[in-house]
Design a protein around this nucleic acid. Structure first.
Lengths: 236, 236
DNA sequence: CCTCGATGCGTACAGTGTTCGCACCGAGGA
DNA sequence: TCCTCGGTGCGAACACTGTACGCATCGAGG
């Protein structure tokens, strides 16, 4: 025992660990999501996250390998907000798939950092929640009666579209939000040719629905005649 | 006309500025793209870029506001690799659009960092080259004879799909490349149920073409009957 | 009561983007 | 010919970052 410093001071200056509240991986992930939603992905730092959890920055490394893995966990966690589509039947596939797509878009808009992150890691091996979601979608296409081997490509095409629009939409909204004005103000500043009466939120939703309908139309065309729910006006 | 025989000191003790090669914004951007292609977006640092240009790190700030703006410039620059689609006619719109989509996918695969970056800044206000590309696409849909006001939504849907697939595909390929094995090795390691005879690159291209055809099918359904080229495969 | 694995965290290190101020160049006027 | 002066390069510095390491401390189990 070297006499490096004061042996012990008073009780009051002791490190004073009031209650040893253990960190949880779950806690860390939800705090991460809060921070990501609030300030964006590049504002996420381990130290900031630590203080938000009333913990030291390096404590997090006991529960998470590194920052990248933490973000991956966050990505899969928000996929858990989606409930998988209902039972798959060949009559209801189109509405079920459309609903899943709408939910997915809403989730990406709620968490604008998810889109770019998905673009860096790919859609497939993200985690159990994402897998549950994609396999639920796949079941819909299987029940719909697509030719053998096409269900996969159909589901993939749909997912790519939804993630593509939603990501770009989320980025657009984030840029506006960072500039501090409302969407309509921003629009009338940056492209004054749009009318005042249109609701930009509605416009975005219509655009999404338009593309979604076109993809579902195109997919429905691959079904054996009779099963399809095509909205195509040309009856052939 | 000015003779370089400066009477200061000897040539050898001069501050040794061998040739005053001025940096150019263009030089910087192309070096940035090289570095991004080679090592990915998070390996891009101003100091590394500086040494690659045989310049100090902070010299770059004379020509570029900051790192983010530099990446934006790089993004728009690679959009310049795409040549805008040919003259738009109502007979050739489908092949022209399919070709533009294929080119765009190839570009995103050549530069795997573009996808996530597009997801962070949005598709629209990226720069003149991207604008040229999207407006060329729009002209195709206008010439195709879509109902008034729908050309925009059609072009947007297509772009979202292409960027969505290509981004996720590029991420997948980057993960594999970083692991140092070939795509087929990686596949037989991670999902041994796929056969040996399939060419994974061909599979990806087929998947892309499948979704593209479905979207174009769905879009063609909105044309006045007679103009549509429904279900025409784009394959090679 | 003692031991031991698990956990928290202070310190430290190698980087990062970016600012500031100074040194220098080359052209344009006196 | 000299002398200014806007533009350019860049070394030093600052505030941060992710994270490896080692030590202090805990709770449970013997």
């Amino acid at each position: 025992m070297p006499r490096d410093a004061k042996p012990i001071t008073s009780v009051w200056t002791r490190p004073h660990r009031p209650q040893r509240e253990h960190l949880t991986r779950e806690q860390i992930v939800t705090a991460t999501i809060e921070l990501l939603d609030g300030e964006g992905v590049e504002a996420l730092s381990m130290r900031k996250l630590g203080t938000r959890l009333k913990a030291g920055a390096t404590s997090l490394y006991r529960h998470v390998a590194n920052r990248d893995e933490l973000i991956q966990l966050a990505v899969d966690d928000v996929f858990g907000e989606l409930d998988p589509p209902a039972a798959a039947t060949h009559r209801t596939w189109r509405t079920a798939v459309a609903r899943a797509a709408t939910d997915l878009r809403a989730m990406v808009l709620r968490h604008p950092w998810v889109g770019p992150e998905l673009g860096q890691v790919g859609l497939l091996h993200v985690g159990p929640n994402a897998v549950r979601m994609t396999s639920g979608l796949l079941a819909q296409f299987q029940a719909a009666g697509f030719p053998a081997g096409e269900e996969d490509q159909a589901a993939g095409a749909l997912m790519s579209y939804v993630v593509g629009v939603a990501t770009s939409e989320a980025a657009y909204l984030s840029v506006i939000a960072r500039s501090g004005v409302s969407e309509r103000e921003w629009l009338s500043d940056h492209s004054p040719d749009v009318g005042e009466e249109v609701d930009p939120r509605q416009v975005r939703e219509d655009r999404f629905a338009y593309g979604l309908d076109r993809i579902l139309d195109g997919l429905a065309g691959r079904l054996t005649p009779g099963n399809d729910g095509t909205s195509r006006p040309t009856g052939r």
